[in-house]
């Protein structure tokens, strides 16, 4: 392990899947980002942008026949791509944990929630049954589960969606992982429960120093929760930077248009919502140049070649506009 290396460094990650008849398709192309200790980074994008695939690649969970993963994923300086199954198993759960949108698919319905958390604890730590259960109850309590002793004896279907999500987070955190990957953890929840879970994630960073890779399609969740944000579009990084800067002055036309198309909850109501024409391309039909170019209001000849990530202020953007001296203006500030 390298003490100076970032907690997680993903470099030029490319995920290629077979698409039948000998053809292949790049689901994720040259995605790079890094995550430091006690940091929450948002990986945001629409369906099919490659955000979940990137997360699965980090966890070593892509086992589709014929899938190819190229590039580098280093955790504390140690390369994860190509790591053997045993080493990966020791790392997963103990060092890197993941929570999913649907806790019902992550929890088995045939055992109690407590049994499942005990099992994970005992797989990684030398604990007795009673010792594991005590820790489980403690964890559930820390996650804000009321009456944790009783909740541990319940089956997943007997818990509400919010409690199930808390139980899954408790399980993910049972071995104090330094990295938590949360894939759309609040998408299936109602807003009032979502607010509770987002509070919980922020507290994890504060109290335990956990780093969180938060994958979401919800720009509101990102704005409220993440220190830094990476925006994906069609398997490519459109831009990344500190959340504050990115929301104040998005540098990529996609980010700007995406933010504009969200109806505001406060301030004046626009007569029409600014919308992005068309739809994201299928990975197999991605244009050779900038993937956003066919829908972009600023598309021009220079966009025919794939732009590389260029720094602009604290941000990095895959767009030719800043280099052409035509950087996007700051977002209109909403009057409350």
């Amino acid at each position: 392990m390298d003490a100076d290396a970032p907690l997680l460094a993903v470099d030029n990650l490319t995920i290629t899947l077979p698409a039948g008849r000998g053809r292949t398709v790049d689901i994720v192309e040259n995605v790079s980002f890094r995550l430091d200790g006690a940091e929450i980074m948002g990986l945001v994008g629409e369906s099919g942008s490659g955000k979940s695939m990137s997360a699965l690649a980090i966890m070593g969970l892509i086992d589709a026949p014929g899938a190819r993963i190229a590039g580098s994923i280093r955790f504390r300086g140690r390369e994860l791509i190509g790591l053997d199954r045993r080493a990966l198993r020791a790392l997963r759960g103990a060092e890197i944990a993941m929570i999913f949108q649907d806790p019902m698919t992550a929890l088995t319905p045939v055992h109690t929630v407590g049994w499942q958390i005990d099992e994970q604890l005992r797989a990684h730590q030398p604990l007795s049954r009673a010792g594991a259960r005590a820790r489980t109850v403690e964890l559930l309590g820390e996650m804000g589960v009321p009456d944790p002793r009783r909740a541990a004896d319940r089956y997943p279907h007997q818990l509400s969606g919010g409690l199930r999500q808390r139980a899954m987070i408790a399980m993910a955190l049972s071995c104090n992982p330094s990295l938590l990957i949360a894939d759309e953890p609040t998408t299936a929840l109602d807003v009032t429960v979502q607010a509770q879970i987002l509070d919980l994630l922020r507290r994890l960073r504060q109290d335990f120093g956990s780093s969180i890779l938060l994958i979401t399609h919800d720009m509101g969740v990102v704005a409220e929760t993440c220190d830094r944000t990476t925006v994906l579009y069609s398997g490519n990084v459109a831009e990344h930077g500190p959340t504050d800067a990115l929301f104040r002055q998005p540098a990529h036309p996609y980010t700007a248009a995406l933010l504009d198309s969200i109806p505001p909850l406060r301030g004046t109501r626009p007569r029409r919502l600014p919308s992005i024409p068309g739809a994201p391309p299928a990975p197999s039909a991605r244009p050779p140049g900038c993937p956003f170019q066919p829908r972009c209001a600023y598309g021009h000849v220079a966009c025919e070649t794939r732009p590389s990530l260029l720094p602009i202020g604290a941000q990095q953007v895959a767009c030719v506009l800043p280099a052409e001296g035509r950087a996007l203006p700051p977002r209109a500030v909403l009057s409350a």
């Binding site: 509070d199 969740v221 409220e224 929301f247 104040r248 500030v333 909403l334």
Partner: peptide, 23 residues
């Protein structure tokens, strides 16, 4: 409470969150 729980896609807007307990 419902309105205050909606995460807003902008920074610098401070809204008082009314957190409801339970489900």
């Amino acid at each position: 409470a419902l309105i205050s729980a909606v995460p807003e896609p902008s920074v610098g807007v401070t809204t008082r969150r009314i957190t409801l307990s339970g489900d």
